[in-house]
């Protein structure tokens, strides 16, 4: 289930085209920044068991998001670093240590099919990414990596560059902050209390469209037939049986279930990294807090980008002048 994704396909939801894009956009951007890319360049989103990659030319890569204990030629390599790899190096993933989705960025970006200004894979429409589908054995992926800047590499082994991105911001907590949704008041007072005080478990019926949760059933005051209205990433819908669904990257543009709450944008990354069987809980917050956390996350990414760009340029300059 590995696929090519970028920041998503926006602007055509009015035609029913869902945004797709990386599940964990924060980790996707960290991977890109480490590889010296534009933050929204296309990356490969990996689920465990993940693909094995054979590099057919020298490249600079970076891994971020979930830790699947990666190795190159059998030697463990860390996430959140830029790595210079050689021709014939093999990247593999051995065990899912934490998180559900890892991101592989390559300097210069992944070359992929573009559909409606995005390279994200839309499986339903079979468009974007790698021929509109998930990656398969023997697929050949091209990148925008410039070989000249890696001419210093010669026959050397791969190298892990010494600086790292701070990954703490990603998923160190199972608390998801939420804001009340348009149909929040459809729940009884007791259901509201249950919703915010009891944990839930992510079930196996969870994918890039949505997560079905195992939660204490929630009562609604009235059974109101809802007509289709807009939904987005992080929308928590209440099903008729009192169970919950949280919508994620491949969600439809509109839905017909009550939208009782919405996971704040700054916690989409945590949401994206939940695996089947993981427990978590929802806590209500307010707009000021949600916006502050989102702005903080964005500023952190900008600082990281500045720092990484500087370190990478310095490194490449020094490496190429030693020759």
């Amino acid at each position: 289930m590995d696929s090519i994704q970028d920041a998503g396909r926006y602007g055509r939801q009015y035609l029913g085209v869902n945004p797709s894009g990386a599940m964990d956009k924060y980790a996707m951007q960290v991977a890109n920044v480490l590889a010296g890319n534009d933050r929204n360049d296309a990356v490969i989103e990996l689920h465990f068991p993940a693909s094995v990659f054979l590099f057919t030319s020298p490249l600079m890569i970076a891994l971020a998001g979930a830790d699947f204990s990666a190795s190159i030629n059998g030697e463990p390599v860390p996430s959140n670093h830029c790595i210079v790899v050689n021709r014939n190096d093999v990247l593999q993933f051995h065990r899912p240590l934490n998180g559900a989705r890892a991101y592989l960025a390559v300097r210069g970006g992944i070359r992929a099919d573009e559909w409606l200004q995005s390279k994200s894979t839309n499986l339903k429409a079979a468009a974007g990414g790698y021929q509109g589908r998930c990656l398969q054995k023997d697929d050949e992926i091209f990148t925008g990596c410039l070989q000249e800047e890696l001419s210093f590499l010669n026959k050397e082994e791969f190298r892990v560059l010494p600086w790292a991105a701070d990954s703490k911001a990603i998923s160190d907590s199972s608390q998801l902050l939420v804001l009340p949704g348009p149909e929040w008041d459809i729940m009884t007072e007791e259901a509201k209390h249950t919703f915010t005080t009891t944990p839930f478990i992510t079930t196996r019926q969870s994918d890039r469209m949505g997560y079905r949760l195992l939660n204490q059933p929630l009562q609604s005051k009235e059974r109101q037939e809802m007509i289709s209205s807009p939904v987005c990433f992080g929308t928590i819908q209440l099903l008729p049986d009192g169970k919950l669904i949280v919508l994620v990257a491949d969600h439809q543009t509109t839905g017909g279930y009550p939208r009782i709450a919405q996971v704040i944008t700054a916690h989409h990354s945590r949401l994206a990294q939940l695996m089947a069987g993981d427990g978590a809980w929802f806590t209500l917050t307010d707009h000021a807090t949600a916006e502050e956390l989102l702005v903080k996350q964005e500023k952190h990414l900008q600082q990281l980008q500045n720092a990484c760009t500087f370190r990478l340029e310095e490194y490449l300059h020094a490496a190429n002048h030693k020759l």
């Binding site: 926006y10 602007g11 939801q13 009015y14 007509i227 289709s228 209205s229 807009p230 987005c232 543009t253 509109t254 944008t265 707009h287 000021a288 916006e291 989102l294 702005v295 964005e298």
Partner: peptide
């Protein structure tokens, strides 16, 4: 960022980071 119409509602998507710079203190972007 985007506006999406439905049967009897419209949703508007916006960029909090871009807007937070022009919003006075103590006011939320929303």
């Amino acid at each position: 960022r985007e506006v999406v119409p439905a049967y009897s509602s419209l949703s508007i998507y916006y960029d909090v980071f871009q807007l937070c710079k022009m919003v006075p203190e103590k006011t939320t972007v929303f």
